[in-house]
Protein backbone atom coordinates (compact mmCIF):
# COMPACT_ATOMS: atom_id res chain seq x y z
CA UNK A 1 0.00 0.00 0.00
CA UNK A 2 2.69 2.44 1.07
CA UNK A 3 4.84 1.20 -1.79
CA UNK A 4 2.10 1.90 -4.28
CA UNK A 5 1.42 5.42 -3.06
CA UNK A 6 5.12 6.18 -3.16
CA UNK A 7 5.42 5.20 -6.81
CA UNK A 8 2.31 7.17 -7.58
CA UNK A 9 3.86 10.19 -5.91
CA UNK A 10 7.07 9.71 -7.89
CA UNK A 11 5.12 9.65 -11.09
CA UNK A 12 3.27 12.78 -10.06
CA UNK A 13 6.54 14.52 -9.31
CA UNK A 14 8.03 13.50 -12.63
CA UNK A 15 5.26 15.35 -14.40
CA UNK A 16 6.46 18.62 -12.82
CA UNK A 17 9.07 20.22 -14.99
CA UNK A 18 11.86 21.89 -13.03
CA UNK A 19 10.92 25.44 -13.97
CA UNK A 20 7.31 24.98 -12.90
CA UNK A 21 6.50 26.81 -9.66
CA UNK A 22 2.81 25.93 -9.43
CA UNK A 23 1.28 22.67 -10.56
CA UNK A 24 -2.36 21.75 -10.00
CA UNK A 25 -3.44 18.36 -11.17
CA UNK A 26 -7.17 17.68 -11.42
CA UNK A 27 -7.95 19.61 -8.24
CA UNK A 28 -11.43 19.60 -6.81
CA UNK A 29 -12.56 21.45 -3.71
CA UNK A 30 -16.05 20.98 -2.34
CA UNK A 31 -17.46 22.56 0.78
CA UNK A 32 -20.04 20.72 2.82
CA UNK A 33 -22.97 22.17 0.89
CA UNK A 34 -23.58 23.13 -2.72
CA UNK A 35 -21.67 22.49 -5.91
CA UNK A 36 -17.89 22.15 -5.66
CA UNK A 37 -16.10 25.50 -5.66
CA UNK A 38 -13.37 24.06 -7.88
CA UNK A 39 -14.07 21.19 -10.19
CA UNK A 40 -11.11 19.27 -11.62
CA UNK A 41 -8.72 22.14 -12.25
CA UNK A 42 -5.29 21.55 -13.77
CA UNK A 43 -2.86 24.43 -13.95
CA UNK A 44 0.83 24.88 -14.69
CA UNK A 45 2.67 28.11 -13.98
CA UNK A 46 6.36 28.49 -14.77
CA UNK A 47 9.02 30.44 -12.94
CA UNK A 48 9.10 34.08 -14.01
CA UNK A 49 5.61 34.18 -15.52
CA UNK A 50 3.18 37.06 -15.13
CA UNK A 51 -0.34 35.67 -14.85
CA UNK A 52 -3.77 37.20 -14.41
CA UNK A 53 -6.52 35.06 -12.96
CA UNK A 54 -9.91 36.55 -13.83
CA UNK A 55 -13.50 35.55 -13.39
CA UNK A 56 -16.75 36.69 -11.81
CA UNK A 57 -17.43 36.29 -8.15
CA UNK A 58 -18.29 32.69 -7.41
CA UNK A 59 -16.00 31.46 -10.16
CA UNK A 60 -13.67 29.81 -7.65
CA UNK A 61 -10.82 32.33 -7.66
CA UNK A 62 -10.77 32.80 -3.89
CA UNK A 63 -10.87 29.08 -3.29
CA UNK A 64 -7.97 28.66 -5.70
CA UNK A 65 -5.93 31.28 -3.82
CA UNK A 66 -6.75 29.67 -0.49
CA UNK A 67 -5.56 26.34 -1.82
CA UNK A 68 -2.35 27.90 -3.13
CA UNK A 69 -1.69 29.43 0.31
CA UNK A 70 -2.53 26.13 1.98
CA UNK A 71 -5.33 27.78 3.93
CA UNK A 72 -7.50 24.98 2.59
CA UNK A 73 -6.78 21.44 1.52
CA UNK A 74 -8.16 20.07 -1.76
CA UNK A 75 -10.91 17.47 -1.67
CA UNK A 76 -9.08 15.60 -4.40
CA UNK A 77 -6.24 16.15 -6.84
CA UNK A 78 -2.70 17.25 -6.12
CA UNK A 79 -1.18 20.68 -5.60
CA UNK A 80 2.50 21.41 -5.76
CA UNK A 81 3.86 24.87 -5.09
CA UNK A 82 7.60 25.59 -5.20
CA UNK A 83 8.39 21.95 -4.60
CA UNK A 84 6.09 21.66 -1.58
CA UNK A 85 3.48 18.96 -1.97
CA UNK A 86 0.55 20.79 -0.37
CA UNK A 87 -1.45 17.58 -0.02
CA UNK A 88 1.12 16.19 2.35
CA UNK A 89 2.80 19.21 3.88
CA UNK A 90 3.11 19.02 7.67
CA UNK A 91 1.62 21.74 9.84
CA UNK A 92 5.10 22.73 11.03
CA UNK A 93 6.28 23.13 7.46
CA UNK A 94 3.54 25.58 6.47
CA UNK A 95 5.29 28.72 7.78
CA UNK A 96 8.46 27.73 5.95
CA UNK A 97 6.41 27.30 2.78
CA UNK A 98 4.57 30.62 3.11
CA UNK A 99 7.82 32.51 3.53
CA UNK A 100 8.50 31.77 -0.11
CA UNK A 101 5.31 33.58 -1.12
CA UNK A 102 4.57 37.29 -1.00
CA UNK A 103 0.92 38.20 -0.65
CA UNK A 104 -0.93 41.46 -1.35
CA UNK A 105 -4.61 42.00 -0.64
CA UNK A 106 -7.25 44.40 -1.89
CA UNK A 107 -7.68 45.89 1.58
CA UNK A 108 -3.90 46.16 2.17
CA UNK A 109 -4.08 44.50 5.61
CA UNK A 110 -1.54 46.79 7.22
CA UNK A 111 -1.06 47.15 10.95
CA UNK A 112 -2.89 50.39 11.52
CA UNK A 113 -1.26 51.26 14.82
CA UNK A 114 2.26 51.23 13.38
CA UNK A 115 4.21 53.37 10.98
CA UNK A 116 5.38 52.56 7.48
CA UNK A 117 8.79 51.34 8.57
CA UNK A 118 7.38 49.02 11.24
CA UNK A 119 4.83 47.55 8.85
CA UNK A 120 7.52 46.51 6.42
CA UNK A 121 9.95 45.42 9.12
CA UNK A 122 7.16 43.27 10.60
CA UNK A 123 7.58 40.70 7.81
CA UNK A 124 11.25 40.44 8.63
CA UNK A 125 10.55 40.07 12.34
CA UNK A 126 8.30 37.17 11.55
CA UNK A 127 11.10 35.36 9.72
CA UNK A 128 13.47 36.28 12.56
CA UNK A 129 15.89 38.42 10.61
CA UNK A 130 18.56 40.21 12.67
CA UNK A 131 17.76 43.83 13.49
CA UNK A 132 20.69 45.37 11.57
CA UNK A 133 19.72 43.49 8.43
CA UNK A 134 16.10 44.53 8.81
CA UNK A 135 17.13 48.19 8.72
CA UNK A 136 19.03 47.95 5.44
CA UNK A 137 16.42 45.70 3.81
CA UNK A 138 13.53 47.99 4.77
CA UNK A 139 15.39 51.02 3.42
CA UNK A 140 15.97 49.25 0.12
CA UNK A 141 12.28 48.28 -0.15
CA UNK A 142 11.16 51.80 0.74
CA UNK A 143 13.14 53.28 -2.11
CA UNK A 144 11.87 50.58 -4.51
CA UNK A 145 8.24 51.51 -3.82
CA UNK A 146 9.05 55.22 -3.58
CA UNK A 147 8.08 55.79 0.04
CA UNK A 148 11.47 56.53 1.58
CA UNK A 149 10.50 60.05 2.78
CA UNK A 150 7.37 58.76 4.52
CA UNK A 151 8.86 55.91 6.51
CA UNK A 152 7.85 57.47 9.82
CA UNK A 153 4.23 58.15 8.85
CA UNK A 154 1.39 56.18 10.37
CA UNK A 155 -0.13 54.06 7.62
CA UNK A 156 -3.54 55.59 8.27
CA UNK A 157 -2.14 58.95 7.12
CA UNK A 158 -1.28 57.53 3.69
CA UNK A 159 -3.40 57.47 0.53
CA UNK A 160 -4.75 54.18 -0.75
CA UNK A 161 -2.05 53.92 -3.38
CA UNK A 162 0.65 54.55 -0.80
CA UNK A 163 -0.83 51.97 1.53
CA UNK A 164 -0.83 49.39 -1.23
CA UNK A 165 2.81 50.21 -1.91
CA UNK A 166 3.59 49.58 1.75
CA UNK A 167 1.78 46.25 1.48
CA UNK A 168 3.77 45.44 -1.63
CA UNK A 169 7.03 46.31 0.09
CA UNK A 170 6.04 44.04 2.98
CA UNK A 171 5.21 41.21 0.58
CA UNK A 172 8.54 41.56 -1.21
CA UNK A 173 10.98 42.13 1.63
CA UNK A 174 11.47 38.44 2.33
CA UNK A 175 12.40 37.92 -1.33
CA UNK A 176 9.54 35.61 -2.25
CA UNK A 177 9.69 33.42 -5.31
CA UNK A 178 6.03 34.06 -6.08
CA UNK A 179 4.10 37.30 -5.58
CA UNK A 180 0.40 36.62 -5.18
CA UNK A 181 -1.86 39.65 -5.39
CA UNK A 182 -5.59 39.41 -4.72
CA UNK A 183 -7.46 42.35 -6.27
CA UNK A 184 -4.49 44.66 -5.58
CA UNK A 185 -6.09 47.58 -7.40
CA UNK A 186 -9.65 47.01 -6.18
CA UNK A 187 -9.58 49.94 -3.76
CA UNK A 188 -7.50 52.30 -5.89
CA UNK A 189 -8.23 54.99 -8.44
CA UNK A 190 -6.95 54.34 -11.99
CA UNK A 191 -3.78 56.40 -11.55
CA UNK A 192 -2.70 54.56 -8.41
CA UNK A 193 -3.80 51.25 -9.90
CA UNK A 194 -1.45 51.74 -12.81
CA UNK A 195 1.43 52.67 -10.56
CA UNK A 196 0.96 49.47 -8.60
CA UNK A 197 0.79 47.45 -11.80
CA UNK A 198 3.99 49.04 -13.07
CA UNK A 199 5.71 48.07 -9.82
CA UNK A 200 4.41 44.53 -10.25
CA UNK A 201 5.85 44.43 -13.75
CA UNK A 202 9.20 45.68 -12.48
CA UNK A 203 9.23 43.00 -9.84
CA UNK A 204 8.39 40.39 -12.46
CA UNK A 205 11.26 41.61 -14.64
CA UNK A 206 13.60 40.92 -11.73
CA UNK A 207 12.60 37.27 -11.87
CA UNK A 208 9.72 36.94 -9.41
CA UNK A 209 6.69 34.99 -10.60
CA UNK A 210 3.67 37.29 -10.33
CA UNK A 211 0.08 36.06 -10.07
CA UNK A 212 -2.68 38.63 -9.92
CA UNK A 213 -6.32 37.89 -9.26
CA UNK A 214 -8.36 40.81 -10.53
CA UNK A 215 -11.62 42.20 -11.85
CA UNK A 216 -9.95 45.13 -13.58
CA UNK A 217 -10.65 44.61 -17.29
CA UNK A 218 -8.82 47.72 -18.41
CA UNK A 219 -5.56 46.64 -16.82
CA UNK A 220 -5.79 43.04 -17.96
CA UNK A 221 -6.66 43.97 -21.48
CA UNK A 222 -3.92 46.53 -21.96
CA UNK A 223 -1.08 44.55 -20.32
CA UNK A 224 -1.32 41.55 -22.64
CA UNK A 225 -0.11 38.92 -20.21
CA UNK A 226 -1.20 35.34 -19.70
CA UNK A 227 -4.85 35.33 -18.64
CA UNK A 228 -6.54 32.40 -16.92
CA UNK A 229 -10.31 32.80 -16.96
CA UNK A 230 -12.39 30.88 -14.46
CA UNK A 231 -16.11 30.26 -14.39
CA UNK A 232 -18.13 28.13 -11.99
CA UNK A 233 -15.14 26.26 -10.64
CA UNK A 234 -13.37 25.42 -13.87
CA UNK A 235 -10.78 27.07 -16.08
CA UNK A 236 -12.63 28.12 -19.20
CA UNK A 237 -9.75 29.83 -20.93
CA UNK A 238 -5.96 30.01 -20.52
CA UNK A 239 -4.36 32.28 -23.11
CA UNK A 240 -0.88 33.78 -23.45
CA UNK A 241 -1.25 37.52 -24.12
CA UNK A 242 -4.94 37.14 -23.39
CA UNK A 243 -7.77 39.49 -22.55
CA UNK A 244 -10.58 39.56 -19.99
CA UNK A 245 -13.56 39.56 -22.29
CA UNK A 246 -16.10 37.64 -20.28
CA UNK A 247 -18.71 40.40 -20.45
CA UNK A 248 -21.77 39.94 -18.30
Amino acid sequence: MAEKSRTRQKRARSRITPDEVITLDNVTKSYSIGAPALNGISLHIKRGEFVFIVGDSGSGKSTLIKLLLRELEPTSGSINVLGFNLNRIRHRQIPKFRRKLGIVFQDFRLLKDRNVYENIAFAQRVVQAPTAKIRTNVQAMLSLVGLAPKYKNKVTQLSGGEQQRVALARALINKPEILLAVEPTGNLDPGNAWEIMKLMEQINERGTTVIIVTHNREIVNSMRKRVITMNQGVVVEDVEEGVYDNED
Partner: peptide, 16 residues
Amino acid sequence: SEEIGIMKYIGATDFF
Protein backbone atom coordinates in the same frame (compact mmCIF):
# COMPACT_ATOMS: atom_id res chain seq x y z
CA SER B 1 -7.09 38.71 14.76
CA GLU B 2 -6.19 40.74 11.69
CA GLU B 3 -2.58 41.05 12.81
CA ILE B 4 -2.49 37.33 13.55
CA GLY B 5 -3.86 36.61 10.07
CA ILE B 6 -1.14 38.77 8.52
CA MET B 7 1.50 37.03 10.60
CA LYS B 8 0.29 33.67 9.38
CA TYR B 9 0.35 34.77 5.72
CA ILE B 10 3.88 36.03 6.10
CA GLY B 11 4.95 32.68 7.51
CA ALA B 12 5.15 33.16 11.26
CA THR B 13 5.60 29.97 13.24
CA ASP B 14 2.99 28.98 15.83
CA PHE B 15 5.43 29.87 18.56
CA PHE B 16 6.05 33.33 17.14
